[in-house]
């Protein structure tokens, strides 16, 4: 087990390094840079000399390998640099924004798992063919609705017309409801789709027949026997989905005017704020690595056969 953990941690380090390096190269190759954006633009009146002076002072005229070595060295010592746009330290800015996004994505994931799981279980449990068809078609609808559109629709109806919940901001639990619902819809739909499919497969397995022959009730068969087996693929998917939710937060936080990692990302990309983009990329890579690790460690708990293979 320890060797397994060490191997996984080494893998995680490689993933983080790769994410850092690839994003650095991509940002370097883009035309323009953060300082030109901040100081100039066509409407700016900074002279070329002024901009060049600041560029030089910030090391932007150094060759790529020198800039890369600097950035990597700083990152290794925990210094992610300062945002070119705001001048604030990147690490601090991310730490400030992270709780907002964790709150949002956390609520969204809970809603997605409960809602998606509920739909899947209801669809496989019911004996009414029509209801089953309706329930099974819900995930496809959920996945195909763009988050931007769902968000605007919820804002229009629930907030502007009914006046039930605020359309913007980070204050209070009320402000989380609509954006979390928007995020949870496609995520929940994916969970429902995969779980419904693996439930159907599991319910056709011989051990279900055995359980039934032993006199187990439908509820027990469903929740105790089939769900436990069927939840493995759904769990894997949930890991992917929680990454997607982080990505979707870029759109959802903009629509709902929430501060958070998504908004930071959007602004950083717009302004080619290299240090900030890299900070966010590292964070995203870290989240993916951690979630994957947690899921891997959960497998043996759910299915002892997996544990033996490790």
């Amino acid at each position: 087990m320890r060797r397994y953990l060490v191997r996984r941690l080494l893998q995680a380090v490689v993933v983080l390094w790769a994410a850092f390096t690839v994003s650095f190269i991509v940002l370097f190759l883009l035309p323009g840079d953060s300082l030109s954006i901040k100081l100039g633009g066509l409407e700016g009146t900074a002279t070329r000399e002024q901009i060049d002076a600041v560029r030089g002072a910030n090391g932007l005229d150094d060759p790529i390998h020198v800039q890369y070595a600097h950035a990597l060295g700083d990152a290794l010592t925990g210094d992610l640099g300062t945002s070119a746009q705001t001048g604030a330290p990147v690490a601090g800015t991310i730490v400030d924004a992270l709780p907002q996004t964790l709150q949002l994505t956390g609520v969204a994931m809970v809603l997605a798992v409960l809602g998606g799981g509920g739909v899947a279980l209801a669809a496989t449990f019911t004996r009414l063919r029509a209801l089953r068809q309706v329930l099974l078609s819900l995930p496809a609808i959920g996945i195909s609705m763009p988050g931007f559109w769902v968000g605007l629709l919820l804002v229009q109806v629930v907030s502007f017309q009914w006046g039930l919940l605020p359309a913007m901001g980070n204050e209070g639990w009320e402000s989380v409801v609509l954006p979390a619902l928007t995020l949870a819809l496609p995520a929940g739909a994916m969970v429902a789709q995969v779980l419904a499919k693996s439930m159907t497969t599991a319910l056709a397995e011989p051990y279900v027949e055995t359980a039934r022959a032993k006199g187990a009730g439908r509820v027990r068969i469903h929740l105790r026997h089939a769900l436990r087996n069927a939840s493995l693929p759904a769990l894997t998917l949930a890991a992917v989905v929680s990454g997607n939710v982080l990505v979707e937060s870029v759109v959802v936080e903009t629509v709902f005017s929430r501060a958070g990692i998504g908004r930071l990302t959007a602004a950083a990309v717009d302004n080619q704020d290299v240090a900030m983009v890299q900070g966010v990329v590292l964070l995203a890579a870290l989240v993916f690595v951690l979630v994957a690790l947690v899921v891997d460690l959960l497998y043996p708990v759910l299915d002892p056969r997996v544990g033996r293979a490790v």
Binding site: L30, P31, G32, D33, S34, S36, I37, L39, G40, G41, L42, G44, I51, D270, N271, Q272
Partner: peptide, 8 residues
């Protein structure tokens, strides 16, 4: 152009 490209 992207915002930062103009100046260049």
């Amino acid at each position: 152009l992207a915002a930062g490209e103009q100046n260049q």
